[in-house]
Design a binder for these strands. Structure first.
Lengths: 250, 250
DNA sequence: CTTAATTTGTTCAAAAATAATCATTATTAA
DNA sequence: TTAATAATGATTATTTTTGAACAAATTAAG
C-alpha cells in the first residue's frame, strides 16, 4: 500500500475515532511502526492532524474563529507549543500588541504572570487577561461581533498612537509571495500592528504555511519572525527572504 | 492515555466541579499520583489552573464580571425601576453613551432588542450586549481592572470624536452644589460623555442624592435630567435649577 | 508549640516512543 | 537493462514519559 492510500485511511480513521495509535496503525496497514510514524509526521507537517506521543489526534475543522473560550479544544497542543515559544520571547517590561486570532488568544495563558503591557483589539484576550498582573490597553472603535474584536478606522488611529516592543499576530495564510488576510479589516489592523512595533512575530500553525487565500496585503518584509510547528521544508522560500524561523515542533 | 488527553479530562472536570484532587485524579485516569501532580504542575505553569495542596482549583476569567453582576444586584429592584424609565427614553436609531456605573449596567437588559448604537467604556456592558441587536462601539485606552472600564486621556480623546443623542451616566454623589465623583478619572469621563451628547440623563438611586463625596467636578448644568427613586423632597435645590426629574418610585 | 500525617520535590530507574543511521527493496528515468 | 531515486524496514542510540523511593516541606491535630 502506498502513501496516498495510507494517508486516506489514516485520515478516515482519525475522523471516525478522533485519534490514532502508532502500533495499531502499523498493524492495520501492514507497515512497520517507523513508517507509521513517518506518515503521521508528514501529515502533521501538512497541518492535517496533530501529533501526540504514541499517535495523533485530529485537527478540528469546526473550530469557529469566535469560539475562543472552548479551552477543552483537543487540538490545542500544537498551538500551545507555538505559544510557549512565543511567551519565551516576552520579557518583563515589554509592551506588546496582540491581535484577534485564535492562536494568539492561546498566548494569554502563558503570559498571565508577566509584568508587561498588552495592547489588543480582541475581546477574548481582554477577558482572559483582566484579572492578572498584565496591564491592559484596549483598542477602541466599532466592535465586530463575528470576530469579537474591534476593527475600523478608529482602531487604526488608536494603534498608530502607541509603540510596542513586540507584536504577536495571526494570519490567514502565508507563502513566499507574501501575507494573506481573510478581510480588508484584518489586513489593515495587522499592517498597523506591525508598523508600530519594533519586532513582529507571526504565530501560525502548519496549516497556514503555503496557503494563499483571498487578500494578499503585504510583503513578507512586514514581519521579522515566524513561530510555527511546520516542517522546515515547508518554509522554503520564506526563510530565504530573511525571516527568522522559530520552530515549535516538540 | 497520553498527556494531551489527560489535560483535556482534567480541565473538563475542573470546569464541571471547580476543583480536582490528586488521589482521585490518579484513580480516575489510571495513572500514579506523581504523574497526576506533574500534570497539574504543568497546567498550573501554563496558567490553566491554580495549584493547591492536594489538588487544583479552576481559574475563572469571568469571576469578576460575576461579582459585578452581584454587586449590581444590591438594591436591584430600585435600580431596575430606574433603568426601566431610562429604557423608555431610548428610541430605535439613537446613539447613546453608557458609562461604567453599576446602575447603568442594569440598563443593558432593557435595551437588548433595540436597534441602537451604544458607545461605552464598561467591559461588563460590552459583555452583556455583545450578542444582541445593539451595535457596539468600544472606547479605547488604558483598562482599569478595579472598575472594569477604560479610563484616561485616550478614552477622553475617543469620546470627543463621537456625538450621541443621549448619555446615561452614573455618579458618586449629587447635591444642589453640583456633581461629585470618586476619582479624577471618573470625573473627566463623565464630563466628556455629557459634553458630547445632546441630552444627558443621570441614573442615581436615593443613596446618591444629597451626597457630597471627594471631588466636585461639575455644575448641575452639565446634565439635563435625573432618573431616581428618591422622594421629591430630597431633590429640593436640584429641581429648582432646571433639572428634569423622572421619578422611578414604584 | 510540638508531633504526626500528608503532600511535595528530587533522584533514579525502567519502559515506551522517537530519531538517526544504514541496508534493502521498490520505483522511475534514461 | 541499468543507474538513480525514493520508500521502507531493521538496528541502535537518544529522548520522553512514567513510576518508585526517600528526604524535605507543608498542613493538621493534639
Amino acid at each position: 500500500m502506498n502513501f496516498p492510500k495510507r494517508k486516506q485511511k489514516i485520515l478516515a480513521q482519525l475522523d471516525k475515532d478522533g485519534e490514532v495509535d502508532v502500533k495499531q496503525l502499523a498493524d492495520d496497514l501492514q507497515i512497520s511502526e517507523i513508517t507509521a510514524r513517518r506518515d503521521l509526521n508528514q501529515l502533521a507537517a501538512d497541518g492535517l492532524l496533530y501529533r501526540t506521543h504514541g499517535g495523533a489526534t485530529k485537527v478540528n475543522p469546526f473550530e469557529k474563529p469566535h469560539d475562543f473560550l472552548n479551552k477543552g479544544a483537543q487540538n490545542a497542543t500544537a498551538k500551545d507549543e507555538i505559544c510557549r515559544i512565543a511567551a519565551g520571547q516576552i520579557n518583563d517590561g515589554d509592551v506588546i500588541f496582540m491581535d484577534c486570532g485564535s492562536t494568539v488568544f492561546r498566548l494569554c495563558q502563558f503570559i498571565k504572570n508577566k509584568k508587561i503591557k498588552v495592547i489588543t483589539n480582541s475581546l477574548p484576550v481582554i477577558y482572559e487577561l483582566q484579572n492578572c498582573s498584565v496591564s491592559l490597553n484596549i483598542i477602541g472603535g466599532e466592535f465586530d461581533k463575528e470576530r469579537q474584536a474591534v476593527h475600523g478606522s478608529m482602531a487604526i488611529e488608536h494603534i498608530s498612537k502607541y509603540r510596542a516592543s513586540k507584536a504577536f499576530l495571526g494570519i490567514d495564510g502565508i507563502s513566499k509571495n507574501g501575507l494573506f488576510a481573510g478581510s480588508e479589516n484584518e489586513a489593515s489592523i495587522t499592517t498597523s500592528f506591525a508598523a508600530n512595533s519594533a519586532y513582529t512575530y507571526l504565530l501560525c500553525d502548519a496549516s497556514k504555511i503555503g496557503r494563499e487565500s483571498y487578500l494578499r496585503f503585504a510583503d513578507l518584509s512586514l514581519i521579522n519572525a515566524i513561530i510555527t510547528d511546520a516542517a522546515i521544508d515547508k518554509l522554503l522560500g520564506i526563510e530565504e527572504q530573511g525571516i527568522i524561523i522559530l520552530n515549535a515542533k516538540k
